[in-house]
Amino acid sequence: MKPFQYLRPKTIAEAISMATDYPEAQYIAGGTNLVELMKRGIASPSKLIDINHLPLKKIEHRYDRLRIGALALNSDVAKHKSVLSRQPLLAQALLAGASGQLRNMATVGGNLLQRTRCSYFYDLALPCNKRKPGTGCGAEAGINRTHAIFFAGNGFGGNEKSSCIAVHPSDMCVALAALDTEVVINGTSGERRVPLKDFHRLSTLQPELDTNLQPGELVTAIEVTDNAFAQHSHYLKVRDRASYAFALVSVAAALQMDGGRIWDARMALGGVAHKPWRYWAIDLMLRGQAPSEKLFREVAEHEMQSARATTQNAFKIKLTSNAIVAALKAATGIS
């Protein structure tokens, strides 16, 4: 690890001015991803701005939305009363991720910004467009069993030199993507809000960029608008072992039901794309319908028409389809 200077700002403004003054600086919060990246030489900030002492831990419900400070810990969010009562899908997704220890360290902001788990990204000796643009995507013709099946447009996200088939590793973000979430960002020119769908990027021409965050900007909170999904939401995670593993595929399903029919439906998929993959058409397909396995199968297969396998992950298309069915069954309570 390259030596770094440790900085501990006391205010948000101070933090942002530090990050703006030193382009080679990086913010650190929980550190659960960044410390590993630094140990492996993938991130090598010469200045580390420890934001843990900024007043960004608060979780509160105000007006029509739940506001969660960027420094709120994953474990605190998962057990917070307002989260459990208003957005149980978020709690479920958080608890499906990582481990008790990691959830105690990882922050909401850090979770939004965690980097892919693609093995090629983590090994300096292997090619990776995300780590080192222009070196090629190691996974594309390599080991890609766990890689993406949904891409921007029709292609793999650009030409060969810029392609990246890595997937976003977060569970939390998949739940947030299914809900109406805004990311609150502070920078030198003040505060701005970005809908979560526009926060993460698909790997187009610049796979090195995971998000649309600008240099020096700091995520200060997320806000989730109230909804009527609490009774019929489900987070399903499929993985290679029973716990403490990244998703092969995950499904966040949020439905509103009344009188045995579905009146509103949101869904996002994890482990299948460079960002949490929102299934936009699902609402149209389910609205007004009575739940049935047959319907769910049609709905699942509809979205899978645009999925595209690489060399080793064709199974993920069927697995995702099955997982959508399973998640919808669980959310609607049909057997």
Binding site: Y6, I28, G30, G31, T32, V35, E36, L48, G100, Q101, L102, N104, M105
Partner: peptide, 8 residues
């Protein structure tokens, strides 16, 4: 409970 390897 915290992972001491992941915190400076």
């Amino acid at each position: 409970r915290t992972l001491s390897c992941l915190t400076f």
